[in-house]
Design a protein around this nucleic acid. Structure first.
Lengths: 251, 251
DNA sequence: CGAAGTTCTCAGGGACCTCTGAGCGAGCCT
DNA sequence: AGGCTCGCTCAGAGGTCCCTGAGAACTTCG
């Protein structure tokens, strides 16, 4: 397979790109360097151009250089608060999308209003899948992202996921999923025909501070199978010793 | 699907545009920078071109550059009062629409006199849904807005809302709603088939200074259900862990 | 000034979700 | 085949999320 001519993610999936076909630019702002590192890696994996900053001042400086399409912004920063940074960022680039990171307890507090513009937020601890999904949603709605293949729906064989309505159907039949089941399936559907290890799944779908064991993944795969593969040709396959694959039914 | 060619809101809804198809231009004038930021974000989210100014002098200057179709104008400004600014604005652009922001106990007489010309006002603290709705109404009545799709009524399945008459019917049957219930339903109807989190709903429907808990949203959803879903196929669905969706009944 | 309506707080209870533990079966190796 | 590892599933504890009734504070209106 030839890549290089086309904008692709490191995972081989087609990337969301800017209208001119270049990579989307994202700025990550968090004073927790480990977390910033993880986020940066995950977003690069999506095929985006990423820069990181550790405080409000360097965030504004970086924004001047990068002119990012989106910013992932920790509300609690050492030097300034989210509102101030947001204002400065909007001065630099008025149409930038913002995804806020916030502690769970702070939600009721000050976030109300910040996100009112159509921006979004996730509460710590979050899963990488969630951050990526929210960011994709923001960029898509902002019209900054040009779709190469996928629409707001994810499709694998007769399995269809509407991320906005949080609805999943198989062969037209509605499948009800719990939040964790939904995120697990989303991760699988975004990586069809690819074996995903239990460790990979844990890293992506579960919160970064989850200490649990791989057994949970087996359990949730089991739940998913019961709900979507029951009485049908199975789409989720076990690769013993390696992990799981989601495949459209072969014919 | 290609976006960008067409004028759409960041929410994906079709936008109100100027007769020539370009984005409507709005000027926000308020010395509370946080509030101005929130308003700016919310109006951009509607697909409009927005600029902000913090005092009367810079408002007039910005108006010269932007030539706005509408102005959101705080009556209390640090340098001059709103009425003086209004006169200057009318010199710059005689047909501009004005939405006043005013404290609840402000002298309603003078406001009434000014708004008699067709302009409108909202009292602080307000909800973003209300500001957006008033502004849409103003622009529509002034003939500045070209309708792309929606008229003054919103329709989801057999549920119909006439925004101007403040009337809601389901299957032709009139449903009486309190002001808050009405705004909540309006927000839901403007985002059908889309899961809205309680935080999002709070941000849009409740006043920006409302410190209450997400619990209120549950309560009002409960009220709405009692009034519009009672004895019928339900249209409001709970998505546990995520929020609520409004969906037309069949499929 | 009383009555009706509206908004919000509080608390109980129920439904659902997540994860643990254990038993069992299936595959793999020698 | 036997023994081992790996994966599947059941059952259930504990926790979280959500719904709803009751009522207090406030506003509006007659």
């Amino acid at each position: 397979m030839l890549v290089g001519a086309m904008n692709t993610t490191r995972s081989g999936r087609p990337a969301l790109t800017r209208p001119d076909g270049t990579a989307l630019r994202v700025l990550v702002v968090d004073d927790d360097l480990d977390l910033a590192e993880v986020l940066t890696g995950a977003l690069r994996y999506e095929g985006w151009e990423v820069r990181a900053a550790g405080d409000g001042a360097s965030a504004v400086a970086a924004a001047h250089e990068l002119l990012p399409d989106a910013v992932v912004l920790d509300v609690m920063l050492p030097d300034t608060d989210g509102f101030a940074v947001l204002r400065r960022l909007h001065e630099v680039k008025p149409d930038v999308c913002v995804l806020f990171l916030t502690a769970r307890d702070a939600v009721e507090d000050r976030i109300a209003g910040i996100t009112a513009g159509g921006d979004d937020y996730v509460t710590k601890p979050f899963s990488l899948e969630e951050v990526v999904a929210r960011l994709r949603g923001l960029l898509r709605r902002a019209g900054m992202a040009r779709q190469l293949e996928e629409g707001p729906r994810l499709t694998v064989g007769d399995l269809v996921m509407d991320e906005e309505a949080r609805e999943v159907t198989r062969a037209g039949e509605l499948i009800e999923l719990s939040p964790t089941e939904f995120e697990l399936l989303r991760f699988l559907m975004r990586n069809p025909r690819r074996v995903l290890s239990k460790a990979q799944i844990l890293d992506r779908v579960w919160s970064y501070d989850f200490g649990g064991r791989a057994h949970v993944v087996e359990l949730y795969i089991s739940y998913l199978r019961k709900k979507m593969d029951a009485g049908r040709e199975p789409m989720i396959h076990t690769v013993r010793g390696s992990g799981y694959v989601l495949k459209p039914v072969s014919r």
